[in-house]
């Protein structure tokens, strides 16, 4: 459904936003880009939906070249942008109806389809409210519905749950899984929430600074870490402890600067006593040890050497949240 080959975007002014990414999205699949702020997720989507011209490489969506036949691409994709893109003065139903008209749906289909997508996202009761009276989660659901209006074969979701509270986020996940099941549509989504990528995606690509570092099914990526478990040891002397861990197991490991050593090993619980003894005899102080099952967070850490901070909002996100609040108040 989507095939990208060395897709590249250099913005005017020389910012290399997307640096030769190649990937494909199969029919009926949910494929995700997981990456931090500024990784190039939105830029990639904009190229795939023909809003931006790539400066290198090529991409085909539904079999059509994004540069050569943009109108054919536009007809077969639906998109939910990162920032709200609704007409707030109009009602939900009007937003859907105008969209359907611009995609050339005849009246009978339009009316039936509006009912269908409203039911899919549970907004039938509020359909005739002006959008400015919707909550953030309702707006998101309306945008999902609108993205589906014209029976797209590929749906692009740019950070579908950004800025929503945990409960609303879960609800949106359910809607996304429902529409995948009921519409059979292929989905390309971006996110910087680990749990979201894990829950929704059949395959994930980790993207950082415009490059894909690794991709695969979440389960494969996790087992590819080289152990069935994760052991995190906190210490004032991470370098010393890393050496101890290396001597002890020699397997895959990651050292962090912030007083942590993370090791990927099988059966980590039974290894704690060994580690404590070895650290003790090497004279390396150990504050605490934590064990857990590997998550995408660990995969991310392994390939980027950093954590995505989910709790601390980045400056860009704070600004966006502020903008949303302002728009709501208008």
């Amino acid at each position: 459904m989507v095939e990208a080959e060395g897709l590249t975007k250099v913005y005017e002014g020389g910012v290399l936003a997307v640096d030769g990414v190649s990937f494909s999205v199969a029919e009926g699949e949910i494929f995700g880009f997981l990456g931090p702020n500024g990784a190039g997720k939105t830029t990639t989507i904009k190229m795939l939906v023909t809003l931006l011209r790539p400066t290198g490489g090529s991409a085909r969506v539904c079999g059509h070249d994004v540069v050569g036949s943009p109108n054919l691409v536009r007809r077969c994709v639906g998109i939910v942008f990162q920032d709200p893109a609704l007409d707030r003065e109009l009602t939900g139903r009007e937003n859907l109806d105008y969209h359907a008209r611009m995609y050339g749906l005849p009246r009978e289909i339009r009316e039936r389809r509006i009912g269908e997508v409203l039911d899919l996202v549970g907004l039938r009761e509020r359909a005739d409210w002006p959008v400015k009276r919707y909550s953030g989660g309702m707006m998101r659901r309306l945008e999902l519905a609108r993205g589906l209006m014209h029976y797209p074969r590929v749906l692009f979701l740019d950070e579908p749950t950004l800025g929503l509270d945990a409960q609303t986020r879960r609800a949106i996940w359910d809607y996304i899984l429902t529409l995948k099941r009921e519409e059979g549509v292929s989905i390309f989504l971006t996110t910087h929430y680990m749990e979201e990528a894990d829950r929704l995606c059949d395959r994930v690509a980790i993207i950082d600074r415009g490059r894909i570092l690794v991709s695969g099914a979440p389960g494969d990526l996790k087992s590819g870490l080289g152990g069935g478990g994760v052991l995190i040891a906190r210490t004032p002397d991470p370098d010393g402890l890393a050496a101890v861990v290396g001597d002890l197991w020699g397997g895959a490991r990651v050292t962090l600067g912030e007083g942590e050593v993370v090791a990927y090993v099988d059966d980590p619980g039974r290894r704690v006593p060994d580690l404590v003894r070895a650290a003790d005899s090497a004279g390396v102080p150990l504050d605490s040890v934590e064990i857990r099952r590997p998550s995408l967070e660990d995969v991310y850490l392994r390939y980027t050497g950093r954590r995505i901070r989910e709790e601390e909002a980045s400056p860009a996100e704070v600004m966006r949240a502020r903008m949303r609040a302002r728009m709501r108040g208008r």
Binding site: T50, R74, H99, R146
Partner: peptide
């Protein structure tokens, strides 16, 4: 307010 993107991505 973002609505322009929705219009510009339509196949018209």
């Amino acid at each position: 307010f973002g609505f322009l993107k929705e219009v510009l991505v339509a196949p018209v």
